[in-house]
Simulated scan of single mutants.
Amino acid sequence: MLKIKKIININDLTLLKEHYFSHSIGPLDGMWHFGFVPMSDHFGFYEENKLIGYCCINSDGFLLQFYLSKEAQTNISELFKQLINNEISTINMIKGAFVSTAEPEYLSLCLDNANTVNAHSMMFRHEDSIKTKSIAQIQMDLVKTEELAELVEFASQTIGAPKEWLNVYYKNLITRQELWVYRKNDHVIATGECRRFDEYQKNYADLGMIVSQNHRGKGIATQVLNFLVQQANRHNLQAICSTESMNIGAQKAISNAGFTSKNRIVRFDFN
């Protein structure tokens, strides 16, 4: 008989998450799986006290990960239906799911049960073989601890992210030397992130950037990405990134920096 329990220590899922990532057909988005997922609730699936699967649900009631081992006796389709029909008392109401097209089994389960489907984000991967536009290069500097408050304020005003979350997130990036800043006349013009993975997909570096609203449309975003790709190359890592499907300007900048997109992050809403 299957039992479902809330996971207190996410490290208990390390082996299952290794399997989860190994079954993907491409690199998964770093911000989603290493930013949003750890902040969400995890529930373990147990058969005879053996952990054979898990799911991850964010505070808005959306599934972010779903996995059931091939060794499990439980029918995966039936379990998924029970989850999204809110028939499991230990799990709060599930409204929908986010899943990438690089996660075929989880994607198929969502397609079988969705009420509405919308492309949320485009996932990109840098390709060295692609000829990029010749543009001026910029020099970015590693962010220092004493610049934390200034850059938290910059990001909060530019993209509307909560300061409390940014403070923790940026502090970690600064410690790991993964956050860069581009200044002009002592003003912050852009920030860039080159996040290395400690587990699961160690051959990739996940890039992120923020450009001041007053300096967009000038090619700076592409310059920032070119710089960050160079940082990834220094570590022999392939650069990946993503942006929302409606953000045409970012998509253009990413493409100009030699990235291609073959996968999407999809939002599903259930009945």
Results as ranks from 00 to 15, higher is better:
L2M: 09
K3G: 01
I4Q: 11
I8W: 10
L13W: 04
E18H: 05
H19I: 02
Y20T: 05
Y20M: 11
S24Q: 12
G35D: 11
P38I: 10
D41L: 13
D41H: 12
H42F: 15
H42D: 12
H42W: 10
Y46N: 03
Y46H: 06
N49V: 02
I52K: 02
G53L: 00
C55W: 02
C56E: 09
I57N: 11
L64C: 02
L64A: 01
Q65I: 02
S69I: 04
S69C: 00
A72N: 01
Q73W: 02
Q73I: 12
I76D: 04
I76M: 02
S89Q: 08
I91T: 04
I91W: 12
I91V: 13
I94R: 04
V99Q: 06
S100Q: 09
A102G: 05
S108M: 02
L109W: 00
C110E: 03
L111D: 05
D112Q: 02
T116G: 00
N118A: 03
A119K: 07
M123H: 11
H126N: 15
T132Y: 10
S134A: 12
I135A: 09
I135T: 15
I138D: 14
Q139M: 10
D141K: 14
D141R: 10
E146R: 08
E147K: 09
E150A: 15
F154M: 11
A155N: 15
A155V: 08
G160T: 11
P162T: 13
P162G: 06
N172V: 03
N172A: 08
T175H: 06
Q177P: 00
E178R: 04
V181H: 06
Y182L: 14
Y182P: 08
K184G: 06
D186W: 05
V188Q: 07
V188F: 06
T191C: 01
G192H: 13
C194H: 12
R196V: 03
D198Y: 09
E199M: 03
E199D: 14
Y200N: 14
Q201W: 09
Y204V: 12
A205P: 07
V211S: 07
S212H: 15
G217S: 04
G217R: 03
I220E: 05
I220F: 09
I220Y: 13
A221S: 14
T222V: 07
N226L: 13
N226I: 13
Q231P: 01
Q231V: 07
A232S: 15
H235T: 07
A239M: 11
I240T: 15
S242F: 05
M246R: 05
N247W: 05
G249A: 10
G249C: 02
A253S: 15
I254E: 10
S255Q: 15
F259L: 11
F259D: 14
S261W: 13
N263R: 03
R264M: 09
I265S: 06
F268W: 00
N271C: 00
